[in-house]
Design a protein around this nucleic acid. Structure first.
Lengths: 179, 179
DNA sequence: CGAAATGGGTCAGTATTGTTGACTTAAAAT
DNA sequence: ATTTTAAGTCAACAATACTGACCCATTTCG
């Protein structure tokens, strides 16, 4: 039904476009498409977890924390802060809630007892798993459709877009602080 | 200097991982990496525009509106709402500000005068251009590094992740309402 | 040892961006 | 003439982020 209004919702660009500064070799149009791709893919990817999160009264910030703690068991608070690039206060709210509700456990560091080493509890791991499964379907389908070579390209481009610190983090080199 | 603390910030996964439900052919590890890629690439991609936006007292929501109006000159308010997937009230704040400050112009529809057709003013186009240029560097470098085939793969995977409606929108078929 | 640095926690206040719900106006459509 | 539709608006609320200013315990360093 909504498909019938096509003509009302798309428009031919009026004589707006100024001479697009031809700086580099890659066309603007190509870059614009990349913007759209990032917006929609990220939007829909994150959205698939939201329903589960809503049920539990949690938000995306909680998911992010769960994800990075799950992937880096024993991570310190400051490392987590560096990876997420948010402030201590922002993380505190989310993290305290996760600890209070039994999703995240903590233990003092062995040599340095100032450290709070974070891990997922079984309950936390189960939740993270649930959230992950929802997103996995998306990725899985997309990967199948693109083939192994496509996935390689996806990796290369995404890595190219992120900061060097993030690449280092993903490679396991470099401290999380540089993320 | 920060690189010296490596041992403090990465941890070997304790015996946590439960038997990873082997539903599909694609490994969990691969999927986890995809999560990281999306998080970091999106984070850093959006961040590059923030400095410019801060100068002008604008936020990311304004950027998104500018982007989609720029790419669809004459778009209606309801189409823009559908693309952004936010509520009328959320958009109103952002859009009114953009109109007030002369970044966005409006004109009533020709046949249907209820419609508010949105376009970028010269000032708006200039700003959008500035924001775009910052992000273009990222994409441009990433694309060069990945090569044409890599870019193809990137496209395929990103399209696979997003909702069908978003794919339709990008293809120019389907109303923006289905986004 | 004593001072400084570090990891972490907390209080208070603010901004951005999103939400729901209810209601109005003007223009189309039936 | 009535009903739909596109859009705008008011009010209240929630999530997530931020800044700035502190405090405490532990570790490190001169």
């Amino acid at each position: 039904m909504t498909g019938m209004l096509k003509d009302k919702t798309r428009f031919v660009p009026p004589p707006k476009l100024p001479p697009p500064t031809p700086v580099v070799d890659l066309s603007d149009a190509e870059m614009r498409i990349a913007q759209d791709l990032l917006f929609f893919a990220y939007r829909d990817f994150t959205n698939v977890a939201d329903q589960v999160l809503d049920e539990l009264g949690l938000g995306r910030a909680h998911h992010r924390a769960l994800h990075f703690i799950g992937r880096n068991p024993g991570i310190t608070v400051s490392s987590l802060l560096a990876v997420l690039r948010i402030t201590k206060q922002s993380l505190a709210r989310v993290l305290n809630q996760l600890v209070d509700e039994g999703f995240v456990g903590q233990a003092p560091g062995f040599e340095d007892r100032r450290l709070r080493l974070l891990t997922l509890t079984d309950k936390g791991a189960a939740l993270e798993r649930r959230l992950f499964d929802a997103q996995r379907n998306r990725i899985s389908k997309a990967y199948s459709g693109a083939g192994p070579l496509g996935v390689q390209g996806f990796h290369a481009v995404m890595r190219g877009i992120m900061d060097q610190g993030a690449r280092d983090y993903m490679d396991g080199t470099g401290s999380a602080e540089d993320t």
